[in-house]
Design a binder for these strands. Structure first.
Lengths: 152, 152
DNA sequence: CCTCGTTGGGCAGATTATTCCAATTTATAA
DNA sequence: TTATAAATTGGAATAATCTGCCCAACGAGG
């Protein structure tokens, strides 16, 4: 992972469907070594994949919620049970383990407040072992980028 | 935005570099109408763009932090000042306005704890007008997907 | 029943991806 | 510094893909 690889990564974070020729030009390489570097980054796992960034409201999921959850117990069984259940819920797009007062933070997208209530009552509560849930609705997004800072 | 558009969106969220031919096959269309739908979704803003999903640690940014910030005052001038300054900080990948006890939540990526301290002292504090900052480090990620739930 | 608008399908020229090999650069050790 | 080895690059040829254009099929509204 050298400076050129990082340059490639940032270009592909800005536009993941860039053609290899444009990418090569952007990073001052000819197409063949450029493509080889991209393939290496993919094979090594540095690039995990590519995805379309979609407007949730246009798709039909206008509500984004961050949900912070604390468990009653942290023994391995309960933790694994919780995590397995969380992974299986399609409305949960992200789930991170955090330091601090709460154990987990989820990013959830739903079609409305009723769908959110349904989500909490029928997807989260049935998991069991939950000590507390703290909900924060997103009401605006000041910044959202996939491009890492440049590290120079 | 019909069911076929949503099918296309989910396919492109799963793999944003899919060729149009494979996409067409995946959604049971021939390549030309499929491409036309994709272009329409892009033009309407439903698809905002495409990006590579990169492993932060491999790139050199192993630490992800969620930072929750409350402002001292919420008059328009102070809010705009804060938001403009936040947008200009490359380490801040996301900044959302939230309901609840805190005003903003940032997602920040840095190279280490020292870089995080530097970020808070030299990027956030100088903005001024901040009432409180609450930091949660990410220690693990249970789930992370770009694919929306299916809405059927 | 007709017409108009929308959507799907096929074709051809242009662009792009991909592979191989020679040449260059870079790193290492004497 | 020089020599050697390894890694990386660049170019050309081929295969795959994109993309714009045209026409056909379907449905809604008059």
């Amino acid at each position: 992972m050298d400076a050129k690889d990082r340059q490639i990564i940032r270009a592909l974070q800005k536009n993941g469907r860039m053609t290899n020729q444009d990418l090569a030009e952007a990073v001052n390489l000819s197409p063949s070594p450029c493509l080889r570097r991209v393939r290496n980054l993919e094979a090594s796992g540095a690039i995990r994949g590519y995805s379309a960034d979609v407007d949730g409201a246009a798709y039909g999921l206008p509500i984004t919620v961050f949900v912070r959850i604390r468990l009653q117990s942290h023994n391995e069984t309960d933790v694994q049970h919780f995590e397995r259940r969380i992974m299986a819920i399609p409305e949960v797009l992200e789930c991170h383990v955090l330091t601090g007062a709460t154990d987990y933070q989820l990013r959830v997208m739903v079609s409305g407040l009723d769908a959110y209530e349904d989500f909490i009552r029928n997807r989260i509560h049935p998991i069991g072992g939950i000590a507390s849930i703290d909900t924060s609705f997103v009401y605006g997004t000041v910044k959202k980028t996939a491009v890492f800072p440049s590290l120079d």
